[in-house]
Nucleic acid binder design. Structure first.
Lengths: 146, 146
DNA sequence: CAACAAATGAGATGCTTTTGCATTCTGCCA
DNA sequence: TGGCAGAATGCAAAAGCATCTCATTTGTTG
């Protein structure tokens, strides 16, 4: 039995050296339940409002940034507009984003990962991170390229 | 025959449907001569100031955006901070950026390009663009990871 | 070279994100 | 369990980047 590690909780917040406050718990819970998986700070703000929790936008930014430092969430800078956040479940992956509806899907490709390492080595770089995002139109009929 | 296409000129501006003005000529020339190859709007502003050309930042943003629409330059959104622009010489490539000194190198890998297409197809996406940036420490001694 | 449309510059404006500060809450210890 | 120090929150102001407004200036074309 060993607790499954795909459910975040107050312990995760505590382990990050942060106090377990209502805003932090709510934000973490929201990221867990979130359909999209990828939400902007403002999305979080509005979703929490809808849920009856009036948490200041500044707090949301602050908390998300702290969660990021703690490795609980990852921040992505897709083109145009706000940063989006997602819960970090430990597995690295890249993204493919629909430029029409905003849908975000994840993928992981070992071949691409390997090639990146090789390329970096050729150029004398030590890889610390990388971001690969494919932009296009998703399968949704309404999103098909004109 | 056929003029070599690696030197931009006023004709390129004119062909883009834009008037050949001093700001536009200076900005284009700067992008050509630029050592780094990748400059932010503010870099352009300062470099032009140093060169004795006092061109407003608003104009620089405007012109760079127009050049982008015309396909003369490409805009990249690397992590943190401003967008950077580079002359578009027609060949697509991705970037590897030193997170210590900011050095930017380019690379192109057909294998990665192909895999992206396959991945998109699997997910039912039509690729319009993509951005792959590797972040790390460059070979420069002072930049080695601690 | 006159006349018009396009372009520029300076500052205002919009958005996203961060910060300062007074107030409120958590976690801890007596 | 009550109280306290330090951390966290909320609000409003600020900061950073990019765009827009509008009066003035500059290409272009006839």
């Amino acid at each position: 039995m060993g607790g499954k590690k795909d459910m975040m909780s107050g312990d995760d917040i505590r382990n990050a050296g942060l106090k377990v406050t209502l805003p932090r718990v709510k934000i973490l819970a929201l990221l867990e339940q979130s359909e999209q998986g990828h939400v902007s700070a403002e999305d979080v703000y509005k979703l929490l409002l809808d849920a009856g929790e009036d948490i200041g936008l500044a707090t949301i930014y602050r908390v998300l940034t702290q969660f990021e430092s703690a490795g609980l969430v990852t921040r992505h800078h897709f083109e145009g507009g706000q940063s989006v956040f997602e819960l970090d479940r430990g597995e690295h992956h890249d993204h493919i984003v629909c430029i029409k509806c905003g849908r975000v899907e994840e993928f992981f490709d070992q071949m691409i990962e390997d090639r990146q390492q090789e390329i970096a080595k050729e150029k004398g770089f030590t890889v610390e991170a990388h971001a690969l995002t494919i932009y296009g139109y998703c399968k949704n009929a309404a999103c098909r390229a004109s």
